[in-house]
């Protein structure tokens, strides 16, 4: 499983899984995209994919996850595109470099912001897990 959408009293929470932190960050962005544009778009994307890069620097890993998702949200909303392809080229505690691909799409849900509320990133024995709450 890449991610699951969980109950939250006012907003939405996504639990994310990955075999390493690279996959965790990619799946987090994918989970957010599938919420905004619908699950179908990430499973069966149509139309030409436009690739670009993203570089993020933050004070720590938790902030890196929030800033990374906030950047994707910003690009998605202003470019009116669904970001469906993620390749994390490099990730450290405070830095991330990624190649991201998007297609033209119409949003079906709004996310206002990525929050720190209840934010968790955990390295388990054989995989990574995270939880992020989005303000919707």
């Amino acid at each position: 499983m890449q991610y699951e959408i969980l109950e939250h009293p006012g907003d939405i929470k996504i639990r994310i899984f990955g075999k390493d932190d690279k996959e965790l960050f990619a799946n987090a962005a994918l989970g957010m995209t599938s919420y905004i544009y619908g699950q179908k778009i990430t499973e069966d994307r149509q139309g030409p994919v436009f690739f670009e890069t993203a570089e993020i620097r933050s004070p720590d890993k938790e902030a890196l996850l929030v800033d990374w998702l906030s950047e994707i949200l910003y690009r998605s909303e202003t470019n009116k595109r669904a970001y469906t392809d993620y390749e994390i080229l490099d990730i450290k505690e405070t830095d991330l470099k990624a190649k991201i691909g998007s297609i033209e799409a119409k949003a079906i849900e709004d996310i206002k912001a990525v929050t720190y509320s209840g934010l968790k990133i955990e390295k388990e024995k054989d995989h990574w897990e995270a939880e992020v709450v989005f303000d919707i």
Binding site: G10, D11, D135
Partner: peptide, 9 residues
């Protein structure tokens, strides 16, 4: 009042 993020709503 209900649960928000940071402050409650």
């Amino acid at each position: 009042i209900h649960e928000g993020y940071g402050f409650p709503i």
